Simulated assay, not measured.
Amino acid sequence: MIDKGDHVAEKPKIVVTNRVFPETRNLLEKHAIVEINPALEPWPYEEVRMRCRDAAGLLAFMTDRIDADFLSACSRLRVVGAALKGFDNIDVQAATNAGVWLTIVPDLLTVPTAELAIGLMLSLGRNIVAGDRKIKKDGFHGWRAELYGSSLAGATVGIIGFGLVGRAIAERLVGFQCRLLACDQSVPAAHAKSWPYVTMTSFGDVIKSSDYVVLALPLTAETWHIVNPRTITAMKTGARLVNPARGSLVDEAAVADAIECGQLAGYASDTFESEDWALRDRPTSIDPRLTTSSAPTVFTPHIGSGVTEIRREIELSAARSILDALDGRIPFGAVNKPHKQFTHAQSGAR
């Protein structure tokens, strides 16, 4: 490796906190010394911080928490490439102050997340998981008058949040002949005309009118527990709630209460409060009332973007952004501009 000063530059170190595809490893190892977690279980916070003390780059995932303390201990860090779209587990301001780029993968997760949202709706409304459990437990003895559910055809579906994911969900629901409502204060009225099959309305109207309420929001201070006892009370009795977005959008204990009293007919989610690492007082597990075999719930283990080709490209996109930043270029998917700058030679990059 030759830098602009015509001397050999030391390869930078890049830490990868979770198991990755061979293509990701091969790309990074061409340009850096790479430490990759080979196991399925993620490294804990303290181990990631220890490994990053002399690292220039970090390929981070949903399981990681990057805060001011972390960045203070990792003074050589120049870029965090997050294999994520939502980045509520990373302190952006702290990264900016520390001179660290933060990049995300802004759009590859949209379509697979929308697909999973539809799957959760169908599974919840049509008792697909309950039917599967019944056959595996008792065998199949022919049709019986049971497990009647709710159809999407003719249902009113309310989408809270109408960014890329919310729009992708709405597009896929058109063929189900639903009545589609959506709310998002960031969508100008003029832009709403681009989606004539969706009625843009208020949050209050969405939750009181919908048979299915689907969350498509980022997690922020304003959206934390946007579904809470007060919200749930305002919903239609017997409504179903679907969450493919972030766990802490929902007060899970309040949802359990609402299911017990019959206010909600069911809850489906791909994300959970316990995994929102940036929230120090988060629950450590899912409310057990929601995970009993008889609960009208459908849960998946955060597989919204879990399509093989998509996950590979997400990793590669994050890896390319790390290499670009270490090479002195503005990286793709950057969500900040570091206060401190560093030279090509300091990065030890390509």
Rank of each mutant, 00 (worst) to 15 (best):
V79G: 06
A325S: 07
A239C: 03
T199C: 05
A83Q: 11
P296S: 08
N37R: 08
V16N: 05
C261D: 14
D324S: 15
N243G: 01
T231G: 09
E313K: 14
L219S: 07
T297S: 05
R329T: 11
W101D: 01
T233H: 11
L40W: 07
E29Y: 00
R19D: 03
P288H: 10
D327G: 14
L326Y: 03
A117K: 00
I14A: 06
V92K: 15
N37S: 10
K137R: 15
Q177K: 15
E115Q: 15
V80P: 04
S294E: 12
T96S: 12
R76D: 10
K337P: 01
A155F: 04
L323S: 04
L290E: 00
V129N: 02
K137Q: 13
T284M: 13
K136M: 11
E46K: 12
P283T: 12
N243L: 01
V129D: 05
A95H: 09
P188D: 11
S317E: 04
A253Q: 12
I303Q: 03
E171A: 08
D69P: 05
F203E: 07
H344W: 12
A153W: 06
T199N: 03
A182F: 01
F87C: 07
L164W: 01
K136D: 01
K340N: 14
I33W: 02
S151T: 14
H7R: 15
L323Y: 05
G247A: 05
A334P: 06
T223C: 08
V307I: 15
A349D: 02
R49E: 10
G139H: 13
A318N: 10
R172K: 15
A145M: 11
I314S: 01
T343A: 09
A221D: 14
T300M: 03
E29W: 03
Q185C: 04
L122W: 03
A253L: 04
H7F: 11
G154A: 10
R320W: 06
A318D: 06
S321Q: 05
T292V: 08
